[in-house]
Write a protein that binds this DNA or RNA. Structure first.
Length: 497
RNA sequence: GGCGGUAUCGUCUAGGGGACUAGGACGGGGCCCUCUCAAGGCCCAAACACGGGUUCGAAUCCCGUUACCGCUACCA
């Protein structure tokens, strides 16, 4: 036994070689919902021990693409959700799927059905017209063996249906507790497991593969709850032990509907490109449907593993709130050392054409100091890059609002800037403290508030009314560049007077 | 329609019959800090879906109702 139940709602897992899997279909990008499912599977394995496997469910040939498969790998790699063993491609297991179906047919647990799709559609429509739920009437369920043989030999197309037994099917879901389905309510009766073209239907392929991969805990979205009784019946018929099932709630958009493109960015790659940190994404996703308790929110990945518990999983669908994701990212940004952030910021700066990598590497201490200043003010690495522009490129752009407000009186502004320049130029050392002494001294001599001096200067230096502390800005810019910026501002004011 | 699932501030959640005047966080509002912007600190508004039980006592247990979500394919 891989677990023990101490009371119906508290399930404690021993550290054991559990085998879990994430099984996406490669029909799009890695969705945040899929990423969260993968994360919980991964956390489970890291916490309780075992292997986390990856299976690509590419049996829908029409919709599956290699691009999509690659995007899923990249997404998982970016998040750091590494998997064990080789990736399993469901499409490669066709022979086993068919062998499992053959076994079921031989055992009389499944049968060939010669009803055509057109006939079925008609019956479905008729049932609907009568206001009834359609159920396959089982007309092929008891065909004489010789008739079946004759029709198969004649090349008549058929599907294979699974014989759903009477009774009910239930299991104890790791997140939902006991769930029971009367078998008569499982789908439309005897369900199809093999298509006319000899390929398996999802439920059969999944069970066959999960058995072959030795999966002990099936953790997936709760949109699969109604597939579960079918799958349990298949395990039974195949004579295999059942895994544990854990059905995670869905993620919805702000309008409460299932998350889709309409809600904006839904692929993890979108967030990567927005400058979200993988650990922040993981942290945010983990909190959607799980809570460690004790009001803990911001966690590193090792902390998440430490605190994770399968019985603290929530049953309720969660809404994806990008505001909180951004806040979370800001928290992780603040937590990271500038040196850790540097590679990300360098990549952004180079991509924006603001500097070359060689240039940045050559003045790494300066860059680290700049990152230190900006990271607390930014919510994404992209924002750090944007805020770094005035320190990297000349000439700077003046923000019209800042100019209008801080240089309102042209004459006075020019005068103040010139006096400021002189005071700064006279400073013995270009360091924060002497510069501060110089400027505060100037303000006092003119009996004006320091802010009245700093704001026009800030616009001259950065083009913006918001920046890190003014002395830090002066130091980052250096003496020459600072004085030039002031000169440039004076010229600008003169020209636009 | 049938079946299944879910229900605490706008959002993520804490809560395991008395510790609930329902806690934290995001977002919103205000104040403080302060050269601006952030960050940080403090404060405010904001929720147990509804109705019945069970119980001395219910956000917590049970039953209904309602709402929302999912499934209902020779998709996965």
């Amino acid at each position: 036994m891989s677990f023990r139940v101490s009371c119906p709602s508290a399930i404690t897992f021993r550290v054991m070689p559990h085998r879990l899997r994430f099984a996406p279909s490669p029909t799009g990008y890695l969705h945040v919902g899929g990423a969260r499912t993968a994360l919980f599977n991964w956390l489970f394995v890291k916490k309780y021990g075992g292997q986390f496997l990856l299976r690509v469910e590419d049996t829908d040939r029409a919709r599956s693409t290699d691009d999509s498969t690659r995007a899923i790998f990249e997404g998982l790699e970016w998040l750091g959700l590494d998997w064990d063993e080789d990736v399993v491609y469901q499409g490669a297991n066709l022979a086993r799927h068919r062998a499992d179906v053959a076994q079921l047919v031989e055992a009389g647990k499944a049968y060939r059905c010669f009803c055509t799709q057109a006939e079925l559609d008609e019956q479905r429509k008729a049932a609907e017209a009568r206001g009834e739920a359609f159920r396959y009437d089982g007309r092929c369920a008891h065909l004489p063996a010789d008739e079946v043989t004759r029709r198969v030999a004649a090349g008549e197309p058929f599907v294979v249906r699974f014989r759903v037994r009477e009774g009910e099917t239930s299991w104890t879901d790791l997140v939902h507790g006991p769930i029971t389905f009367p078998n008569k309510d499982i789908g439309e009766g005897d369900f199809i497991i093999l298509r006319t073209d000899g390929t398996p239907i999802y439920n059969l392929a999944v069970v066959s593969d999960d058995i072959a991969m030795g999966i002990t805990v099936v953790m997936r979205g709760d949109d699969h709850i109604s597939n579960t009784p079918k799958q349990i019946l298949l395990y039974e018929a195949l004579g295999k032990p059942l895994p544990q099932f854990a059905h995670l709630p869905m993620i919805h958009g702000m309008d409460g509907k299932k998350l889709s493109k309409r809600h904006g960015a839904t692929a993890v790659g979108d967030y990567q490109h927005m400058g979200i940190l993988p650990q922040a994404m993981l942290n945010f996703l983990a909190l959607l449907g799980w809570s460690p308790g004790n009001d803990i929110e911001v966690m590193t990945v090792p902390q998440m593993i430490e605190l994770f518990s399968a019985d603290d999983l929530s049953k309720k669908a969660a809404i994806f709130d990008t505001k909180k994701l951004e806040w979370m990212n800001g928290q992780h940004l603040a937590l990271m050392a500038a040196a850790e952030l540097a590679p990300l910021v360098i990549r952004g700066i180079v991509a924006a054409g603001l500097a070359t990598e060689a240039d940045l590497k050559a003045r790494e201490p300066w860059l680290l100091a700049l990152i230190e200043l900006l990271k607390i003010r930014a919510r994404t690495t992209d924002e750090i890059v944007r805020q770094a522009i005035p320190y990297l490129r000349d000439p700077i752009d003046y923000d019209p609002d800042a100019v209008a407000k801080q240089w309102k009186d042209r004459e006075a502004s020019r005068d103040i800037l010139q006096a400021t320049r002189a005071a700064l130029a006279a400073a013995a050392l270009w360091e924060a403290q002497p510069l501060e002494d110089a400027l505060r001294g100037l303000a006092e001599s003119r009996s004006m508030g320091a802010g009245k001096l700093f704001q026009p200067l800030r616009v001259a230096l950065t083009g913006s009314a918001a920046s890190p502390g003014i002395f830090d800005v002066l130091v980052m810019l250096g003496r020459d560049r600072s004085l030039e910026r002031i000169d440039g501002a004076v010229r600008y004011i003169t020209q636009h007077a």
